[in-house]
């Protein structure tokens, strides 16, 4: 009896996840122009513009930045743009609005776990962005074969992808946490925006972490953004090995545990405080 109860709860959560995923997918594709703008073009620009910056520094000489020559840097930036697209984005979750406007209450009275609905968004994000990236890579590798990144090996590609997925889940949990702060704060978009700036820098979207001063790079290697973008990029290109992959998995899993515990704690405390009318 006690063994079947959790499994039936899990089955119910999985069914709900499937339904939430399907509805989120329908919603995101309902506005076609919005779909193109929000889903196809998001997160591409910063790394791509940096190609011009690095061209100005690297293309006319034998100079290297952190061991990157110009073609390797271009490959890295394409990877950074692709991986950043896979990371859950702050605009993907409107929980703070639901809390501010009080209509999160209706979900709380339903016999489902609210977090599963948010997980539906995460699953939809991964599905849509994976498809978009697959399309971009197909086109990019046909049009720019000399610049497009090639995996050092099949295992390097798999390891990189695994790190990005774990990193994306960390990013999703951070978004959820920032949104949950709406139980206490009048506004959270500034925190989301700030997290986004700091994340881009710490993830090495603009400058590879290995090109940063060693003391700074050493500190960033303890944070999940590095293992979500910069390290997978270097793994893919064969600049890092399996030992670093294992370390990355350990760091990311530690972050997931810490963020999950914080999420549980803040969600419970927030619900105690919630009166159905915002912060």
């Amino acid at each position: 009896m006690s063994a079947t109860a959790p499994s039936s709860a899990l089955a119910r959560d999985l069914r709900l996840l499937g339904v939430a995923f399907a509805f989120e997918l329908r919603k995101v594709t309902a506005w076609r122009a919005g779909f193109v703008v929000r889903e196809l073009m998001r997160s591409l620009w910063r790394p791509l513009v940096m190609i011009f910056v690095y061209r100005a520094i690297l293309a006319t000489s034998d100079a290297r930045i952190g061991g990157f020559d110009f073609p390797t840097m271009v490959a890295y930036l394409i990877l950074a743009a692709s991986f950043e697209k896979l990371l859950f984005h702050q605009r993907g979750l409107d929980l703070a609005d639901q809390i501010f406007q009080g209509y999160v209450t209706k979900y709380l009275t339903m016999p489902v776990r609210f977090f599963v609905l948010a997980l539906g968004r995460f699953a939809q994000h991964l599905a849509v962005q994976s498809s978009v990236i697959a399309g971009l890579w197909a086109v990019g590798s046909l049009l720019f074969p000399q610049w497009w990144p090639r995996a050092a090996s099949a295992s390097a590609a798999v390891e990189a992808f695994a790190l990005v997925l774990l990193g994306s889940y960390c990013a999703f949990l951070v978004c959820f946490l920032v949104n949950v702060l709406a139980f206490w704060l009048e506004v959270v978009w500034t925190l989301s925006a700030m997290a986004s700036f700091v994340f881009s820098f710490a993830a090495g979207v603009l400058v590879p972490v290995s090109a940063m001063p060693e003391s700074l790079a050493g500190a960033l290697r303890w944070l999940f953004p590095y293992w979500a973008v910069s390290a997978p990029g270097e793994l893919f290109l064969g600049r890092l090995g399996t030992q670093e992959f294992v370390r990355g998995v350990c760091v990311l899993l530690s972050w997931i545990v810490a963020l999950e515990l914080t999420r549980e704690f803040l969600w419970r405390r927030g619900l105690h405080r919630h009166v159905g009318a915002g912060a």
Binding site: A63, T190, F197, V198
Partner: peptide
């Protein structure tokens, strides 16, 4: 205020790191 300060710092740090190489 903190958000914009973070934005400034990220920009300054990015260019200072680049100028460490060129």
């Amino acid at each position: 205020v903190v958000m914009d300060t973070a934005w400034y710092l990220v920009h300054i740090a990015t260019f200072e790191i680049l100028f460490a190489h060129t």
